[in-house]
């Protein structure tokens, strides 16, 4: 395959992964996440794609997913909040692509890489949602409200379970479909 074909393939793969993220975001695990954010597998295709194609493409697919997510189900109350809760929140999930899985690694090592990659992506997304909450809720709640604590706990409430679910399910991929995760 020549380089042009490769670029088109990267583009279509990213687009299809974004579509999968949207579909997985519809399958929510119910919980008290009434406003914004929910426990789902929406980050899974982005983490998988980042592992497969590296940081840059992981970040690109994440950012585009964030924008589509906002078009489908907008929750906008503040300009900065829009950026941090949508494009940036998922762009940083692509940082999972700092890690790399190759054929030669042992299964145990692959599982650890998956856990670390998912943890990094989830943590950075948590930071983005946390900052967003501090900025917009901080500007709307009266002075003295422990905004940082609320924002942190609220974001942690759905990102931590999502992280556990995704790391667990992706680890199962190591046995059943490792070729999907390996860096191409």
């Amino acid at each position: 395959m020549n380089t042009q074909t490769n670029k088109v393939l990267l583009l279509t793969e990213a687009a299809i992964m974004i579509a999968l993220s949207v579909i997985l975001s519809f399958m929510k695990f119910s919980g008290p996440w009434l406003y914004g954010g929910s426990v789902s597998f929406e980050m899974l295709p982005i983490v998988l794609f980042a592992l497969r194609r590296g940081l840059l493409w992981g970040a690109i697919s994440g950012a585009v997913y964030g924008i589509i997510d906002c078009l489908i189900d907008p929750w906008v109350v503040h300009p900065v909040q829009f950026l941090l809760d949508y494009p940036v929140a998922f762009l940083v999930v692509g940082f999972a692509g700092l890690f790399k899985i190759t054929k030669a690694q042992s299964n145990m090592k692959k599982v650890w890489i998956i856990i670390s990659a998912t943890a990094l992506g989830s943590f950075l997304r948590l930071v983005s949602h946390f900052l967003s909450g501090v900025i917009w809720f901080g500007s709307d709640a009266p002075k003295g409200t422990p905004v940082a604590v609320y924002s942190f706990l609220y974001s942690l409430g759905y990102i931590l379970p999502s992280f556990i679910l995704i790391a667990f399910v992706l680890s199962l991929f190591v046995k059943s479909a490792p070729q999907l995760l390996e860096r191409k």
């Binding site: 279509t12 990213a14 687009a15 299809i16 974004i18 579509a19 690109i60 697919s61 585009v64 589509i68």
Partner: peptide
């Protein structure tokens, strides 16, 4: 990328 994703 957005159009392909939305289309699919």
């Amino acid at each position: 990328m957005m159009s392909i994703a939305l289309r699919f």
